[in-house]
Design a protein around this nucleic acid. Structure first.
Length: 284
DNA sequence: CTGTGTTCCTGTTCGC
DNA sequence: TGCGAACAGGAACACA
């Protein structure tokens, strides 16, 4: 589910509870998510302090005072929430109430708990030495970050200009650009008025610049809106995002195109087994 | 190198 | 109302 804006929303929501907090105890309510947990997973977290919570592509990375990094990917349906934390009669209690599909609980010193919930269990977590993270197979091939530093048309053109894949596929490819998923690729292409079938290799400089600007804009607006909630995504504060109300094409098949002056209707097509929403009239 | 299909898993929605 | 099928935000992999 969660694409870059949802992961970033999660990061920002978790920071107040997690940064500088110490993990007192780790509760694994099953032995695996998408993969089995490492045998020493819980032991390497317990007693450690979180120094910084960062994001790379769609990954959350918590730097620990041990030199380890806790890495989490939300898959299609993962979310974090914070519970508890208020002292009772001068003592702190773990007060987390469990919900269906709560799989990992990080009980923090002070009584709050950070809880990972994931019905489909496509998400995963692991710990890795921080200095080895860049060389980790899941990180070494990751492409350009779209926001920091701001993605330029030239950088984008350099990456996808080498690809003869259709733009829809190229932008979904995390090895080229990091953080985009099906929703934001559709939205960015529509804003840039580019057909999902265009090839990266024949994008002109001006088109690449427009596309880069569109990608940045849609991601930034989505982050400002707290991400998109299609079914049940919510930030760490429990509130849903509301960027879904600002979709111009995604899940709007048959609706009039939002581009000013365009009389087209939003169409749905399939690329590589995934739905693509676009306006055939203004996206060329 | 490319596109396509499959797989992991559960929940929701749609059509009959 | 019930029931099965289709479909859903990700991403790695096998294969043609």
């Amino acid at each position: 589910m969660p694409e870059l804006p949802e992961v970033e929303t999660t990061r920002r929501g978790l920071i107040p509870a997690l940064e500088r907090a110490r993990i007192a105890r780790v509760e694994l309510r099953r032995k695996d998510l998408r993969f089995p947990f490492q045998p020493d997973f819980a032991d390497r977290l317990a007693g450690r302090r979180v120094e910084k919570l960062e994001r790379r592509a769609k990954y959350l990375v918590a730097r620990l005072d041990s030199g380890d990094a806790l890495v989490a990917h939300l898959g299609m349906s993962g979310s974090f929430r914070i519970e508890g934390g208020a002292p009772l009669a001068g003592l702190y209690y773990e007060t987390a109430r469990l919900a269906a599909h709560d799989h990992v609980l990080l009980h923090l010193e002070g009584g709050a708990s950070v809880i990972y919930n994931d019905p489909r269990r496509f998400g995963f977590m692991f710990v890795e030495r921080l200095e080895q993270l860049a060389a980790h197979p899941r990180f070494s091939g990751i492409g350009l970050e779209p926001l920091e530093p701001p993605l330029t048309g030239a950088a984008l053109r350099k990456r996808i200009g080498a690809s003869r894949a259709p733009l829809k596929a190229a932008l979904l490819d995390q090895r080229l650009i990091a953080g985009l998923g099906n929703i934001y690729v559709c939205e960015a292409l529509h804003r840039a008025r580019l057909s999902p079938d265009r090839r990266g290799a024949d994008l002109g400089k001006a088109e690449a610049a427009t596309l880069a600007r569109s990608i940045r804009a849609v991601l930034q607006e989505a982050i400002a809106a707290g991400g998109s909630t299609l079914r049940d995504f919510s930030g760490a504060d429990g509130k849903p995002g509301y960027f879904q109300h600002r979709f111009r094409v995604y899940d709007r098949e048959g609706a009039p195109c939002a581009t000013r002056g365009c009389k087209g209707l939003v169409q749905r097509a399939t690329h590589a087994g995934r739905s693509t929403f676009f306006c055939p009239s203004c996206q060329r």
